[in-house]
Design a binder for these strands. Structure first.
Lengths: 184, 184
DNA sequence: ACCTGAACACCGTTCAAGT
DNA sequence: ACCTGAACACCGTTCAAGT
């Protein structure tokens, strides 16, 4: 069918990284879920690094599309920022996709260079998009730069706290501070 | 001397978890740094879980002392909160000790129950202390509860962002938002 | 009391070999 | 084009054995 082995591997790896982390998941457990041998995964992805890069790039490109969609659809920059919060909440609740990047960010010092570069690009994508919306809303360049980092720290810290406390409400409480930053 | 093997193992493990994560560090690499065999580490810590718990507990008890010291020394609750920010910044800059808990928080779903419980206690310690200071400063119980989570999310998100962007200034920019939350 | 060597089932990776 | 079996050096863990 359309769902080939390669795509299934990426999806399983995504889930595994989100829940347990990059260095904790194994080719052998992925292979077992797919009904093949671990050596077969190396046919699709020569090394674990290649697979990790693909997972990160996969998610980043999907987020980029979503961000472009919001910015194109919603002319009010403050409303666009509210939509970003909604995306983060959904991703956090349903899939674990958002968590992939929080996991990789925490592990970053242990990751191969290629994945580190991918994560750096992920930060830049988010920070630049948030700062652009803040600029549109009338803030100065300096203010936008600072506030973008504060908002993103709240998003990441809120996700980690909700996970650490095993309490989705944690994220929502933290998001109230984001609202205040957006509308001030 | 006073520095026995057991303490050295904890210190090395602490550093290893902070930089690479719990599942990424190995007994064999610790043993090599100590000039002993990996089987010898199991004499001091039966399993990796025991060592992980000890590292987490070790750091948490030190933080608890520091928090009690601040609260006892500084009667002004807002100044006490400022001191907490200073502690986080120092720990982030010099040792990697603060990062231990950010790492473990990210990996939490993959950790043994005992370490998960230790992390939960770490969150409670921080959140309750922050909320207590906010209560003293005149906020209501509900406001203190919410603001404590927002401040802690900024602290954790700021640490992760500084690491992910490899830029210590990231943390300081995020802390400006913490100041605003403290003095509002 | 503290350490070691050897074994176990795990891991990523390689490669010749199968279809 | 896709998968396998067998081998390699790694991992946590156990345990009998050394001092």
């Amino acid at each position: 069918m359309t769902t080939n082995t390669r795509d299934k591997i990426i999806e399983l790896a995504q889930e595994a990284i989100a829940t347990r982390g990059y260095s904790a998941f194994s080719f052998r457990e992925l292979a077992a879920e797919l009904g093949i041998k671990s050596a077969s995964i190396h046919y699709h992805f020569p090394t674990k690094t290649h697979l990790g890069v693909e997972v990160a790039r996969n998610y980043r490109s999907r987020l980029q599309l979503a961000l472009e969609h919001i910015a194109g659809q919603e002319p009010d920059p403050k409303e666009a920022l509210e939509n970003l919060v909604v995306i983060f909440r959904q991703e956090a609740a349903t899939s674990q996709r958002m968590t992939v990047c929080t996991m990789l960010a925490a592990e970053i010092k242990n990751l191969p260079d290629e994945i580190q570069r991918e994560m750096k690009a992920f930060y830049d994508l988010n920070l630049n998009w948030i700062a652009s919306r803040l600029l549109e809303s009338g803030l100065s360049g300096g203010e936008s730069y600072e506030k973008a980092r504060q908002i993103f720290a709240l998003l990441q810290g809120g996700l980690m706290g909700a996970k650490g406390q095993n309490d989705p409400a944690y994220f929502d409480v933290v998001m109230k501070a984001v609202q205040r930053l957006i509308h001030s």
